[in-house]
Design a protein around this nucleic acid. Sequence first.
DNA 1: AGCTCTTATGAATCATTGA
DNA 2: GTCAATGATTCATAAGAGC
Lengths: 293, 293
Amino acid sequence: MKTFTADIKHGDCLTVLADYPANFFDLIVTSPPYADRRKNTYGGISPEKYVDWFLPRGGQFLRVLKPAGTFILNIKEKAENGERHTFVLELILALRKQGWLWTEEFIWHKRNCYPGKWPNRFRDAWERCLQFNKTRHFKMNQEAVMVPMGDWKDARLKSLGKNDVVRFDSQVGSGFGKNIENWVGREKAYPSNVLHLATECGNKSHSAAFPEALPEWFIRLFTDEGDLVLDPFLGSGTTCAVAQRLRRNSVGVEILADYCGLAEAEIKTADYQLFENGAKNGKRINSGNHKVH
Amino acid sequence: MKTFTADIKHGDCLTVLADYPANFFDLIVTSPPYADRRKNTYGGISPEKYVDWFLPRGGQFLRVLKPAGTFILNIKEKAENGERHTFVLELILALRKQGWLWTEEFIWHKRNCYPGKWPNRFRDAWERCLQFNKTRHFKMNQEAVMVPMGDWKDARLKSLGKNDVVRFDSQVGSGFGKNIENWVGREKAYPSNVLHLATECGNKSHSAAFPEALPEWFIRLFTDEGDLVLDPFLGSGTTCAVAQRLRRNSVGVEILADYCGLAEAEIKTADYQLFENGAKNGKRINSGNHKVH
DNA sequence: AGCTCTTATGAATCATTGA
DNA sequence: GTCAATGATTCATAAGAGC
């Protein structure tokens, strides 16, 4: 059985990527350390310096990405002193000046966002997924992320009991998601640029894990099997694990040694699952949580 | 019975507002002509010139808004030449430089977005609702936009079939199915900064009507009864009509005479409805379609 | 009441043509 | 060429009728 590589590199992506050739990766998908967040783990780049910190790395991304490749940046500015920071807006403008095309801004709607209540603000339930490209003609497999139409649910679920319906929505490992694959009919719909995903962060001890469904969606949309994915801010390794599951090769760069260890373990699990399942039918496993429409 | 004024002013808001005193309005909510849209009707401000065109008007808004007031700007950049325009980002930065606080960015998720299919893009299903303030201590009635759970808890839940459970959940995307036991017994829930509204703009022949639920939500959130609302780009009069329905005073400015006529008619209808209904119980009518959570 | 079917309708994009 | 205008194409949802 064919295996797929998942390289974990320890270091700053700025220097690590310098060793890679140009036009090398098919997709870059990442959730970078947010400005002024995770101070204890990442050193906390201040909002004012964020663009200056990011730009040289963005230059490397631009170099190593294939012409038909895509760069997905998951980021959201936090509120401070009663205002939203503007560094993300400035980053978009700066990246365009650097040569990137700002193709699209996807909205990740976090259905179960962090609870809380403030006198002058509601809960923040969305993040930006910024799409950048080198050229206007990039690879895009729209069919790979098609979702069942709304009516499909009614038709299929009407024979189920109420408890099953409830479990259907609680998705994660409910034992129901696995079955979805079996009866996804012909009635599929293209998604829009608003993604509805839960924030399921698994059981890892990572400070900023994004849910597997997020990288999964973009990997399926922008790469083929066997393509090469890069996450320059890997964290606990979600992107590489998902890439492996989806039979893509991947490189993950992480500056913190502890996270590299977590990521290695994650990859091994994913590799084992791939073997277990791939040997049987080659299908992806744990289809679980991609409620996108 | 008390009535509420809804003044329709014909002209460019830049000059019309010059006649108003400072610190006069409690809320400004508007959906301005988008760059390069409605060329035939508005003259089409090009994206490159949009910020320059908007800023002097933003200055007037800043002047006439009360210190505890709020300015809501509904806008979305279009795709051109394969890229998203950046003029909205630049506008945010420019407005901050002008003295505004960029307090929040709400996402209006358009459930029924415009159709279409393209090789490198999905359908655009969201718009920005940018919140700006003069001070950090602004008026905000969070309770006024809470999603009433009592309505269907008492009246509908027991009559809900299992399909309704699924359908409702897919509509609001709130994890209803998962939390069904929690909702029962709770009367209301606070929304997040993601609004789920359909785009139905009624039966008017206006090229850019936003749905009534959008201004309604912000009017209820940021004003009290009897407060004064301004829409400097009134269009066919939605904002004023909604304000009237909600027992707020309002001023609407519109540069096109034809739209002023439409708006006047709209107001009259709203006024009649208010009388009809207000005489009975003072409740808002036609609460219709604000699927917000 | 619940389910199925039908129909109306959206602040859109892109490719093509013409000035 | 560059730029502007025009047309073809597109599809998920809500709402309503009918059984």
